[in-house]
Amino acid sequence: MDRKVVHIKVDKISKSFKNDEGRIEVLKHVSLEIYKGEFLTFFGPNGCGKSTLVNILAGIEEAGDGEITFPETNGKPKIGFVFQNYRDSLMPWLNVEKNICFPLKLKGITKSEQKERLKTLISEFEINIDLKSKVYNLSGGQAQMVSILRGLIVNPEILIMDEPFSALDYQTNLMLYEELLKIWRKLKITVILISHEIDEAIYLGDRVAFLSKKPASIFKVLNSDLPRPRKLEDMGSQEFAELKKKALEIFRNTAT
């Protein structure tokens, strides 16, 4: 794959919010080129503005200043979104099937076509979740999987995931890492994932973008060049340890 086609160009994005004490600057001159088909992870301290940044990328929020462009696509590409808190972002009054198809319903797509698309999506991955079950009866991992499928149902070119794994236990996460990488390999889409686990960020990402404290900017991008396809054992490898060391150094530099 040609990794150097720029899919998203983030150009000096700044953003501030009004609050009680006036304005707080959250993002300051964030610039980055995100390549087509890459798996990019964002890593940064709590509350630094990671969610704000991806919200702007997804078009949910407006940038205060700066520009996001998609040089290769005509207009805005389709974007899928996966939220951190699956419990509060899935609709408990809808069953699994209807939750996944929710974005299609909003677009006014007919029921039969919704079913068709769901069938295609499900058959691509081995997913054994009962489509008729209630989402509140699912395990955390299954629920987040439903959330991921809901993000994918629109056939996005870009999948944005805002800390999708931080509410789940470690074992579930390991399982979901594999699922996610499988999906990504198969669909060849651009994935942007926020993480606050450095292991996760390195293991999943082709590159890890480090954000500074608020107001956040990107001060370093680490190439996580472990060979693909990756296996969970790779987290114990020498190369992995070295990458982590580098990450640690980058982090130490920001602390001062």
Binding site: A58, F81, F83, D88, S89, M91
Partner: peptide, 10 residues
Amino acid sequence: SRIKAAKTFG
């Protein structure tokens, strides 16, 4: 969060 999710899906 649910309103936001719905908004995100357009």
